[in-house]
Design a protein around this nucleic acid. Structure first.
Lengths: 357, 357
DNA sequence: CCACTCTGTGGGAGCGCTCTCACCCGTGTG
DNA sequence: CACACGGGTGAGAGCGCTCCCACAGAGTGG
């Protein structure tokens, strides 16, 4: 009646003394070896033995002790997600939760756990690096790679399977990554603006030290060249709305006659729209705006944002699958996987009659 | 044939054969026992031995094998962050990254790792529960607790140290949690609106199955009562902008004369503002709006949002600290920690001349 | 009929660590 | 001078698991 909670006789901390493999073996009337085989996908196990072990597992509520298993297999059944901390603060909104769900999806059917590794600039990345080297995880997914980050250079050398989300700088052959075709995305934006009759266009690019930003900018320039348009002004933002707004203000001050702006992220595009309005001009009538990401906010923005898709969740899932593959067959380095870029036309570029409002 | 599986001399996967404690001991000229003592905060170790071991550790780049240590100590040096997956998709923006950084801050000086555990509704929470029970982590932080979630009832019984961020339903005495004074926050919102001369007020409450939402609503009602205002209409949203907008439209349809709305989150408040404008009315002139969270977006919204602060990052840090404490001294259950609510007055409620724009 | 293979099984070693225990030295005490 | 005492140390026993190896028995083939 008092529900005495057992007053804690056993291990004071995590994991009240749970049944061991030995217990299972005894209960099933087999040896520890056979029990182990039965539990680990039973090769060379008779149906009776298998059934007995299965029953014992259920009855005793057995969970293999990861530490013990890990000690001998030298596998940890966990992978790390590495994120530079400044990024999470800044890019939190569009990026992070989506990546996480993507990874979780890929991990759902495995028993692999996700360990989060946030690294600050400088010293702290040494800490993270040491952790990764220490064999505490079987592999790593690295996200949001800046030029100054040590990951792309120091991680592949350690032999730790690593997959980058977004092409890292100086990607050595053999380095695995997942990305979208940012170059093509930038090109599509330019083509779209040109096709809409815009002639004085500029761009709010992303941080110059990220490949995604650099590629989008390069593609954008190429697209303009192809369309016979002048290159136009470039301002850099930090992928946030505030940064986009500030960059757009610089752009519009420099080139007041601008009639089209390509922002390298949807959040920045939102900032661009703000800026344009603050200057008493309208979107898309006076200035067409194209974003990037196809973030959830893009469709509901006012006006709805024309944007280039970037299937973040799918990319994360893919990255995770590639990592698991690389872990399972070491030495194999899957080729980079690049998702095609795709333009979603909505009203912010003046080209959309698809959704009325 | 060529690539015969066994040509690989050392562990094929993570953790290329790193030095063991034995290696350190040999290098330092002491026994394994002494090396172990020296490494683990050396009690009863002579200065010379300590120095020799320290030097060996640095020289060989030794990292203790967590699995081996964990096997004998029955500690894993990792904690879980449990998040219901639907939440992360919905509440991603304001919530998640901030909590994560808060936890990371608390963990920075420890060697404790964060394992992410996303649980779907239903079956999957069983999976997560089994993992938590399995002794794979030393403790858990549970976030965004809905009434239907099994955590508050099933986790405390397992003896696994657990801290909730946000008071769980049916919080038993002894259950540890961190929260803000949501009741007081709701009350402040009501008082503020009343003080601003608003008389026909309504609220866009959060999901009825979350304590934070329920408490804010209860506080709001109490505040109205105190101010002598009628209770006014209530609509429920899901904490998102779109949900807030929809709820506000219902509210304004039901009570067209509304001159003040309290939204239980900033995102919903943004949706309320949208809705008000769609109906051709203005904020704050026609309708005053108060949000909740003091999200980054609140300050930069147009108009800047009056809101109640909720120090999410600090709460997460605190929760993590309490968890570590509970892990270190089992049996001790820190009392719930409640942050006070605080109103930040900006322009959306018509009360703010603080920030011009 | 004696090799063999091949399936199913159990014994045992050992992964790298912590922790108990016994031991060796000082030094202090009766 | 014998004794206890306690700081510093090393040997050894596992923690729970996987995996190698040996071995029994049932088929195959020469």
């Amino acid at each position: 009646m008092m529900n005495t909670e057992r007053t804690r006789p056993d291990p004071p901390v995590a994991g009240r003394s749970s049944p061991t493999l030995e217990d299972i073996a005894t209960a099933a009337g087999v040896s520890r070896s056979t029990a182990s085989r039965a539990i680990n996908g039973g090769d060379r196990v008779s149906p009776q033995a298998q059934a007995a072990v299965d029953a014992a597992v259920v009855e005793l509520g057995y969970t293999p002790n990861r530490a013990a298993r890990s000690l001998v297999t030298r596998r940890t059944s966990s992978i790390a997600l590495v994120i530079p901390e400044p990024d999470i603060r800044i890019m939190a909104d569009p990026f992070f939760a989506v990546i996480l769900t993507g990874i979780t999806d890929a991990l759902r059917e495995t028993d692999v756990q996700l360990v989060l590794l946030m690294s600050r600039n400088g010293d702290d990345s040494g800490r993270a690096l040491r952790y990764l080297r220490g064999g505490h995880v079987d592999g790593a997914i690295v996200v949001s790679h800046h030029q100054a980050d040590p990951w792309s250079t120091s991680l592949p050398g350690t032999g730790l399977p690593t997959v980058f989300v977004g092409r890292p700088w100086d990607a050595q052959p053999g380095v695995t990554y997942v990305d979208t075709d940012n170059y093509q995305g930038g090109r599509l934006a330019a083509q779209h603006l040109a096709a809409g009759g815009r002639t004085r266009v500029g761009t709010v690019a992303g941080p110059a030290d990220m490949t995604a930003a650099a590629d989008r900018l390069a593609g954008w320039r190429e697209g303009l060249r192809e369309a016979g348009l002048p290159e136009g002004p470039v301002a850099h933002g930090d992928f946030t709305t505030a940064g986009g707004r500030a960059a757009a203000l610089r752009l519009l001050e420099e080139t007041p006659g601008l009639d089209g702006v390509f922002a390298a992220s949807d959040l920045m595009a939102l900032g661009v729209i703000e800026a344009v309005r603050e200057l008493g001009r309208s979107v898309p009538e006076d200035v067409a705006v194209v974003g990037y990401d196809d973030h959830a906010l893009a469709a509901t923005a006012v006006p709805p944002l024309t944007t280039v898709t970037q299937p973040m969740s799918a990319m994360a899932t893919k990255a995770c699958e590639m990592l698991l593959e690389e872990i399972d067959s070491p030495g194999v380095h899957p080729a980079p996987f690049i998702y095609p870029a795709q333009l979603v036309v909505r009203e912010s570029s003046g080209g959309g009659q698809d959704s009325s409002s």
